[in-house]
Structure formats: C-alpha cells, structure tokens
Simulated scan of single mutants.
Amino acid sequence: MASSFAVGNAFRNQVTELLENTDSSLTRELKEELEQLLEKQDIILSFSTARKLKTCLQDKGHPFYLHELLEDGSLHLPEVVKPPRNPQLVARLEKIKAKLANEEYDRITRNVNTQEINRGGTLADFGREVRSVKAVVVTVFNFLVTIVTAFACSYMGSQYLFTETTARVISAVIAASVVGLAELYVLVRTMEGELGEP
C-alpha cells in the first residue's frame, strides 16, 4: 500500500526556494525534514510530511499549493518482500498435490479393464462372443423356419379353398408375410427388453 510520493524537480525547486526564503516561517522540524529530503538523489516524500507541508502552506498563505509541488510526482509503491516459505509447509503441500494427482488418476482409470487391453482376449470373452453369435444364428434360423412352415401350412391348407395353384401360392405368401411380421414384432420387443428399454 502506498504511504509516500516519489517527487521530481518541481518539488525540489520550489522547496529549495521556500527554504531559502527567510520569512517562510516553517517549523524547525519541518525544515529539517525537507533539508534531509533535498540531500537525497531520489526524493520520497511521506504522507505525514506532505500533510505538515500542506498545513504550513495553507496557514501561512504561500503563493503555491501542495498539488503544484507534487505535479511531476507519483505515488511511491514500496516493493513487496515475500517472506521465505516454510520448508515443512512446502513438503506438506507436495504430499497433498501427489495425493490429489493419484486420486485423479485412480478416478480416470477406474473403469479400465486390463483384460480388454490384452489383444488375444480371454477364454471368457471368447465364450461370451460365441454365445452371442449362437443366439443370433438360432434367432434367424427360428425366424426362417417359422416363415417357411407358415407358407407350407397355408399352401397345403388352401387346397380345400382354392383349386388354382396361383391362388394357393398368393394366399400362402400373404399368410407367411403376416406370420413374419408378427415374429419380427415379438423379436423387436424381446430385444428392447434385453437392452433395458420399455
């Protein structure tokens, strides 16, 4: 936090003129402070000295004001000195960082299965895949047998209704299509149930 001004030549010139003036009626303490400031190369004017100077200039009716003295100056911000870090604290922070990094790594790799990374796979994976393929083959075979048997039954049963072969074939195709659509509907509903959908 700023507690002083860094002032330039305007301050130096006017304060020198003020000190040389014998009837300036500055207090002895203020004169000594100002003389010490003028001896330095870089003038750093504290706020308390600036207040004393302002009060003196106001009370005595001098022809210049404090803002004129500080015209080419700026706030002096002291350099912040960081205290050295406690080595025990640094070591503890490093341990906490390492622990958090390990927890993050464990969270990221929580669902990684090392057996799936293995290129050959395991026998359990192979068995699961064979069962899956077997279920699909059985389902397709069942679907085809159902349609073929529906066609055959309709064709054979329609001989009592129709005498022409074309009419028997058309009725058998229609019956097989209806049975096939019904089978597809049941198959889709079953697969939805296996996937957990309503």
Rank of each mutant, 00 (worst) to 15 (best):
A2H: 09
S4W: 03
S4Y: 01
N9E: 15
N9K: 15
R12K: 15
R12W: 06
V15S: 04
V15M: 03
V15W: 00
T16C: 06
E17R: 14
E20R: 12
N21M: 09
T22D: 09
S25A: 14
L26R: 05
L26K: 10
K31L: 05
E32C: 08
E32V: 06
E32F: 01
L34G: 04
L34N: 03
L34Y: 10
E35I: 02
Q36R: 07
I44G: 00
F47Y: 07
R51W: 00
L57V: 02
D59I: 01
K60P: 00
Y65C: 04
H67A: 05
P78S: 03
P87Q: 02
V90Q: 06
V90H: 01
R92D: 08
R92C: 10
L93I: 07
E94Q: 11
K95L: 11
I96T: 05
Y105W: 03
R107P: 00
T109C: 13
N111D: 13
V112E: 14
N113P: 01
N113C: 12
G120I: 05
G127T: 11
V130A: 10
R131P: 02
A135W: 01
V136N: 09
F141R: 12
N142D: 15
F143T: 03
V145E: 13
T146C: 10
A152H: 10
C153A: 13
C153G: 03
S154Q: 15
Y155C: 12
Y160P: 00
L161G: 07
F162C: 04
F162T: 04
F162D: 08
R168D: 07
S171H: 06
S171Q: 06
A172N: 06
V173S: 10
I174M: 03
A176E: 01
A176K: 03
G180A: 14
G180N: 01
E194Y: 08
P198F: 02
P198K: 06
P198Q: 15
P198Y: 11
P198W: 13
